[in-house]
């Protein structure tokens, strides 16, 4: 278990692109365009990933075993077979949780130092 934690620690802090992709995949499997749409929704359109950034990040995240290509496909009538779907791995989910905790701690510190308040967070 310690080895696994060390591996997660090595991935932190996550880059914004990696964090956004992991967040987009947290609730369901998505293809590249679906990930981009979800990231745009999460960030209220402030983050727009280009094809180079998205697929470069996906490549490195697959290599680091944070995400994997999904074997299951949705209804073929509703979707293009050429699309590839991605899902979070166990390691990816743990890394995302660890990063969320790290960011949450930072927010708590910022609150204690009265840099932000509850209203601004909301």
């Amino acid at each position: 278990m310690e080895g696994k934690d060390t591996k997660i620690e090595e991935t932190l802090p996550l880059t914004p692109a990696v964090l956004h992709i992991l967040l987009a995949l947290a609730d369901q499997e998505r293809h590249g365009y679906g990930i981009m749409q979800e990231v745009a929704a999460i960030t209220q359109g402030r983050t727009r990933m280009g094809p180079g950034t998205l697929y470069g990040s996906i490549k490195r995240m697959r290599r680091a075993s944070l995400i994997a290509e999904s074997d299951e496909r949705p209804d073929s009538e509703l979707d293009d077979e050429r699309r590839r779907y991605y899902r979070l791995t166990g390691l990816g989910r743990r890394a995302l949780v660890a990063e969320a905790r790290r960011l949450s701690n930072l927010v708590s510190v910022a609150q204690r130092k009265q840099l932000i308040d509850g209203l601004e967070r909301a």
Partner: peptide, 17 residues
């Protein structure tokens, strides 16, 4: 190597954009 693996997906993605 990158183009072979991800080129068609990137092109498809860009077309959607």
């Amino acid at each position: 190597v990158h183009r072979r693996e991800y080129g068609p997906l990137m092109a498809r993605f860009f077309r959607d954009l």
